[in-house]
């Protein structure tokens, strides 16, 4: 009664079984292939962004003008400083992560604990920064008008500096009010009405000779957005403008094509979700390190695996940073 043993003739060879041909454990391999598939998801998002941008090449917003806030510096034009800071925070948390992995190789529990803790803090600061960036983007700064053809008209003064709607609008009492539940019998829901009506903007525009409309289109040199003459501005205002846009949401935004805001929310949101899950996983591993789980197990490979994921999040951010803020 011999046991049925099939011999393949490959015993002892690299792919003959019983060893690790790729020199990595099952868990690490699977983490790598998860990262590969996740990287392809982000590739899909970013190339879709590129697709839409190529489609609207002439009217895409300039990132320097959209993301120019810095905490505690109100009204100061600070293009990219904040997002550069965010990038540093994420790169630095990657450094502390790789230091934790390195300490793990040497079985130094105390050091792993410290570095994991710093990594988690870095991740949390990054998440907070992203929330702040989102809230600035959603609330907007200057406001703009939208046209029948779904274009955006922004206001500038004679020197080309942006002018906010609140400095233009001539306010009257009792114009529009937001419809709420206590004012209607069949009320179910309603959208918030902007503080400024199109009429109040038109009135303010007529009063101030030093106002011009800036379209989304680039000028002939291609570096800056085209500013219309006073007459052209007036005609766009009279014939094409249909409403006021303040800030950004999924259907419209004051910075440019609605797709710009959609991609911003989707890509940075999906990345932020990765950072969030990374922080959660890091916290779980952190507690395991403190409890001595890996000390007993004799290996800190788990730290290495979560490290791979964390570096991947950093890797993705490097690309998001380039394609959203720089290019």
């Amino acid at each position: 009664m011999d046991a049925t043993v099939v011999r393949t003739g490959t015993e002892g060879k690299t792919w003959g079984g019983g060893n690790q041909p790729l020199g990595a454990s099952y868990g690490k391999l699977m983490m790598w292939f998860f990262i590969l598939s996740d990287a392809l998801t982000f590739t899909g998002f970013l190339s879709a962004y590129g697709f839409s941008r190529f489609k609207f090449m002439d009217s895409w917003p300039i990132a320097d003008e959209v993301f120019n806030h810095f905490p505690f510096l109100h009204g100061v034009d600070a293009p990219m400083y904040y997002v550069a800071l965010m990038t540093f925070i994420l790169i630095f948390s990657s450094v502390t992560m790789v230091l934790a992995v390195d300490a793990g190789h040497q079985m130094k529990q105390g050091k792993v604990t410290t570095y994991m803790f710093l990594t988690i803090i870095g991740g949390l600061i990054f998440l907070g920064s992203q929330a702040w960036e989102w809230s600035n983007f959603i609330s907007g700064e200057y406001g703009a008008l939208k046209t029948k053809g779904d274009k955006i008209l922004q206001f500038v003064d004679g020197e080309g500096h942006r002018v906010a709607l609140k400095d233009i609008a001539v306010m009257h009492e009792s114009e529009l009010t937001t419809h709420t539940g206590n004012t209607g019998i069949w009320f179910e829901s309603g959208s918030t009405v902007s503080e400024y009506s199109l009429e109040s903007i038109k009135e303010g525009f007529a009063k101030n000779e030093n106002l011009f409309i800036r379209t989304l289109d680039f000028d002939e040199e291609g570096g800056e957005k085209k500013i219309l003459s006073r007459e052209e501005s007036q005609s766009w205002l009279d014939n094409n403008a249909i409403g006021v846009v303040e800030g950004a949401n999924l259907t419209e935004n004051e910075y440019g094509p609605p797709l710009f805001a959609d991609f911003f929310f989707f890509i940075t949101g999906f990345h932020g979700f990765h950072v969030f899950s990374g922080v959660i996983i890091n916290i779980i591993i952190f507690f395991n390190v403190i409890l001595g789980t890996y000390e007993r197990r004799g290996s800190y490979e788990m730290v290495e695996k979560v490290g791979l994921y964390w570096h991947f999040v950093d890797l993705v951010w490097v690309f998001v940073f380039t394609f959203f803020y720089l290019v």
């Binding site: 790729l22 020199g23 990657s94 450094v95 992560m97 290495e304 991947f312 890797l315």
Partner: peptide, 12 residues
């Protein structure tokens, strides 16, 4: 990032 931080340089 991939080669140094993710240790790609030490993989097979």
């Amino acid at each position: 990032i991939a080669w140094a931080f993710m240790h790609m340089e030490h993989e097979t």
